[in-house]
Write a protein that binds this DNA or RNA. Structure first.
Lengths: 406, 406
DNA sequence: CACGAATGTTCTGAGAAAGAACAAACTCGG
DNA sequence: CCGAGTTTGTTCTTTCTCAGAACATTCGTG
């Protein structure tokens, strides 16, 4: 659902319908490709002549391309249209607590190359390193295909307009501008976004063709912290201070463990990967100790999940408790926003089969209505690199999303 | 911020810009009235000719009217335009646990007549009673002015499309259709809406002229229950199951008193009027006893507020505790949505001066950032009948809100 | 190989926005 | 009292896009 904001663009001009129709057409192709001009005309209830006119412009822009003619029962065989994605590239970068991932993808999110290195927190060192790696990747793999931008995903709040990283505690960044230097170094547009929002955008714009764009859902990321990307009426919710979706710091209890944010009993202190690992190790979770404890113990969340899948009792129990609290957190989201769907991302989703019954039961127990209790909750496996898909979406989504009118 | 949904209306036609511009123009007049054509042209950055053309249509439709010419320093004196509200009427009905309010208002929410009677829960008795009262009101006070509809506000979930009351526990209504019979009885359109959402709509569309339409805020109602109307990107959030905004049932503690919804420690069990009165009376709050206890004790929330204002220690303390928990609840809303403003409605706002410091302190203590902590929290006094204003908004808002394209 | 049927293109007309030109109404200064 | 200057509001012409019809293309079929 794309919107035209009649407040920010002051007026509709003679070209407004044209821009709207171009947008609708592009999205119809995106959702139904391959699709013929005649079919588009039927769906949009406009003449085929108009479609010819509009597609010509989109083809000239390089947004669509014509495929082969395809068989049809009778009459002239239709010429199919496709969204041009395979030769338009994007670089997705995911900066996390310990590792940084760099992936070269095409516009539909298909991986072309992937690199990993230890996270460098000093921006003045990080930017040249990224520059070297991205350059090399493009030289090696791009082969004449054009890279249209970089999508940088960070664990923390980001200003939507300036791209400033306002606060990313895991990286120790406060009011860091990485966009400007990286943009200069690489000579291409750089988009910076908070991880859950980027993941939500990927859900919207990199979903399977044929499925329509989801318009009311919440993407919950469970990693070192717990965050959420909220989409309402087809628009990402950032809030006044770019801090919407901080469901990780919703309190579940008034007297639980202290969280990094200073409050007691936040969802995050029960369900973050740190908390789960601590629980597995039999240690009390506390924000101070966890950071030091975990690396020294050598146990990672992936390890805990693997052991749970192998049937180790202690690991299963630790995840069980995480699932129960996560269910409580999701129940809050359902009460607040009543989304059509909740997508959960993070390492623990690899054990979804074991977690789901507990989560569902907890949600059902707390839901206000049967319908709310039945809210679909689906996992996105971390093996599909959701955050890197989010990075790609940062570059490719603006092509499909609502046009901005000056 | 009005939106045009490019998904539901399939395409933009040649008349789309015209409809958009009519909408923008109408809203500019609404926000800046009185305003001249020349000023509108400057704001919309279009020629004065276009404005003449568009205003002519709106005047013909009866949406605008021309006022007097006013003085200007030099040149031809501009002719001011106004939104036609004073001779367009609406009936607002607020059905509450004990009393039902019926108000005849004009389109800007000015009260013309007000009646109250004891709530009748049986719809087949309620509808004829409402019919009698509305008829009489219109006969007595309308005097040639046309009543364009009824806005009915109920404490509970309402289906946005059908107008069915899905669940209103205070009235004992489940899947009750009051819209159809009332519409037939009165022969005018009836809009049914959940109270917090209606109040939020009133905030958007019946705000003081000169102030722009707020686009990201939450309206929290504190009465027998606690609910919220959520507005994001200029659109009301209803959620999949029409149950968005149920912040009253967000848990503050895991082991607090049991709520009507079956869970422990909901915001509502600490901050609803029932809870506050129970606390004042020194009784433990429990959903079963409260309903019976309060009428028999004869103490109302208004009484408690009055005694607190008069300085009675016990009343002040009871409200203090309510305020602290309310602050905790608002903190959850701020984390979830980061709104630009929170509006609080309900009887307890009459004691706002005493409550505010406590609420603010609690919000600040729990907020994640300084900016979030500074989120404006403003009261709407119940003496201004916010729910009835909401009823009026149900009728008048569609005139200003986004047009629907077939 | 003519015919029907479907797709895709081209052409003409209608209607709205854009903007220039014009009319109206007022102030101010001589 | 009158004309210059200024601002508002109206009218008229131009321009550009949508709408829809007519036309061209390309297939299967008898």
């Amino acid at each position: 659902m794309r919107k035209i904001n009649t407040r920010s663009f002051v007026r509709a001009t003679r070209w407004t319908p044209r821009e709207i129709n171009l947008q609708i057409l592009l999205n119809l192709v995106r959702e139904h490709e391959p699709i013929s001009r005649a079919e588009l005309a039927r769906r949009m209830k406009i003449g085929r002549g108009m479609v010819t006119y509009l597609t010509a412009e989109l083809i000239a822009q390089g947004a669509l391309y014509e495929g082969d003619r395809v068989d049809s029962p009778r009459g002239r065989r239709p010429q199919m249209l496709y969204v041009r994605t395979h030769d338009r590239l994007a670089v997705a970068i995911d900066i996390r607590f310990s590792s940084t991932f760099v992936m070269l993808t095409d516009f539909s999110g298909n991986s072309i190359a992937l690199e990993t290195f230890e996270t460098i927190e000093d921006v003045s060192v990080l930017v040249p390193e990224l520059q070297r790696r991205v350059r090399r990747m493009l030289d090696t793999h791009a082969s004449a295909r054009h890279c249209e931008g970089v999508g940088l995903v960070v664990p923390g709040m980001v200003d939507a307009v300036t791209g400033m990283v306002l606060n990313a505690p895991q990286l120790g960044w406060r009011n860091v501008d990485i966009r400007t230097p990286l943009q200069q170094a690489l000579g291409m547009p750089v988009h910076v976004e908070n991880a859950p929002i980027a993941c939500a955008l990927a859900q919207m714009w990199l979903g399977r063709p044929g499925s329509s764009v989801p318009t009311d859902f919440v993407y919950v990321t469970v990693s070192d912290g717990v965050g959420a990307g909220v989409v309402v009426n087809g628009q990402v919710v950032r809030g006044q201070t770019n801090s919407a979706g901080e469901f990780g710091h919703v309190p579940l209890t008034a007297d639980g463990p202290v969280c990094l944010c200073g409050n007691h009993g936040c969802l995050e202190v029960y369900t973050s990967n740190l908390a789960t690992v601590c629980r597995y190790l039999g240690k009390d979770f506390s924000p101070g100790t966890a950071r030091d404890l975990l690396p020294s113990s050598g146990v990672t969340i992936a390890e805990v999940v693997a052991r749970a899948l192998a049937g180790e009792r202690r690991a299963v129990d630790a995840l069980e408790v995480t699932a129960r609290h996560l269910g409580a957190g999701l129940a809050v989201i359902i009460k607040a926003l009543s989304p059509t769907q909740i997508v959960v991302g993070g390492e623990i989703t690899e054990a979804w089969a074991q977690l789901e019954p507990t989560i569902r039961a907890e949600v059902a127990r707390r839901a206000l209505t049967d319908l709310a209790a039945a809210t679909p909750i689906v996992p996105e496996l971390s093996s599909t690199y959701p955050r890197l898909r989010g990075g790609t979406a940062l570059v490719s989504a603006p092509v499909f999303a609502a046009p901005r009118f000056a």
